[in-house]
């Protein structure tokens, strides 16, 4: 997804001289082409995230449209207050890009885990918060960001993210139908979209046909979609690689709580824990029950069928919680 980001930004910057790109000393060789083509508009601020944010704010105050880039925890939690004050208080159109959000850097440990980025950015007034699930989705969203008047956060994947088909275009603020179905709505965000689709394919073999939506925009929340889907399904299964506090599940649950009636809402995703032990992203998803098989099992249980395979005690207990 980082290549899609670099290519799209380069082509946008070709047309729009107000685009500047600031990095906190990350993205090795990813943005060389941008830097070569637009001298002075690529700035390596150094490992100085607060400065990256403040400098971007200063540039935006002078009419530029900065994109700032770092790994998700260093783009969000580290300079949080600078984002809130220098950018959001001033209502400036700065786009913060958090690479490898969730657990893309799983084996780098809790310092590099970015499960809290969505929550942190969502709590800032006026911030648009996005987590596309594929390079193509990112390519579609980026030009739309140029039309936003205020700040935006976009969590992107690292590399090797699969593409997937969708019925309609990706539009900021709109849930995107990935696959039609009935009874159960699997609603993914970020890089969980292809996993949700894989699970749906496996479920089809067992005669279960959930509808799959991707909510690449967490804020503003597509409440029109939520109202519509509430009328159509019995259960909404939120699939997210983000903290259970302040992510998509949290946002959907808060909204649904104010509705007179709504379907059952369940979640699968990582817990509110520091994830220790140097496990890979795949192991982590398996251990905490939000990989393809876990999603299949949850949907099977919902329809009264038994598991397709063994699941861990931890996963059982987590599913019990939801």
């Amino acid at each position: 997804m980082r290549k899609a980001l670099a290519d799209t930004l380069t082509s946008l910057a070709e047309k729009d001289p107000s685009i500047v790109f600031l990095t906190g000393d990350l993205g090795f060789q990813m943005f060389d082409e941008f830097g070569k083509r637009f001298s002075g508009r690529y700035i390596n601020v150094g490992v100085a995230e607060a400065q990256m944010i403040c400098a971007a704010a200063g540039m935006a105050l002078e009419g530029f449209r900065p994109f700032v880039y770092s790994i998700a925890p260093f783009a969000t939690g580290r300079p949080f207050e600078h984002i809130k004050i220098s950018i959001a208080y001033h209502g400036l159109p700065v786009t913060i890009i958090g690479a490898g959000g969730g657990y893309a850097y799983a084996t780098n440990g809790p310092t590099h885990h970015g499960a809290d980025d969505i929550a942190l950015m969502s709590i800032i007034p006026g911030m648009t918060v996005m987590a596309p699930g594929s390079p193509a989705e990112l390519r579609e969203l980026l030009p739309q960001i140029m039309k936003l008047k205020g700040p935006a956060y976009i969590r992107i994947g690292k590399k090797g993210d699969p593409e997937y088909d969708a019925d309609g275009p990706a539009i900021i603020g709109k849930a995107r139908l990935l696959k039609s179905g009935e009874k159960i709505a699997i609603v993914s965000t970020g890089e969980m979209a292809p996993i949700a689709l894989d699970a749906a394919k496996k479920l089809a073999l067992a005669g279960i046909n959930p509808v799959v939506y991707q909510m690449h925009t967490i804020k503003p929340l597509d409440t029109v979609f939520l109202n519509e889907i509430s009328e159509k399904v019995d259960t909404i299964l939120i699939v997210e690689e983000a903290s259970p506090i302040g992510g998509l599940w949290s946002a959907v649950s808060s909204f649904m709580a104010s509705c007179s009636r709504h379907p059952k809402i369940i979640r699968t995703g990582p817990p509110d824990e520091m994830i220790l032990g140097n496990c890979s992203r795949e192991e982590l998803r398996q251990n905490y029950g939000f990989d393809t098989d876990a999603i299949v099992n949850i949907c099977k249980k919902l329809t009264g069928l038994s598991d397709i395979g063994t699941i861990s005690e931890k996963e059982k207990s987590l599913q019990g919680q939801v």
Binding site: A50, Q51, A57, G58, M59, L61
Partner: peptide
């Protein structure tokens, strides 16, 4: 100070 550096750069 950071905002001013960005403004001057711009």
């Amino acid at each position: 100070l950071g905002i001013a550096t960005g403004a001057l750069y711009a």
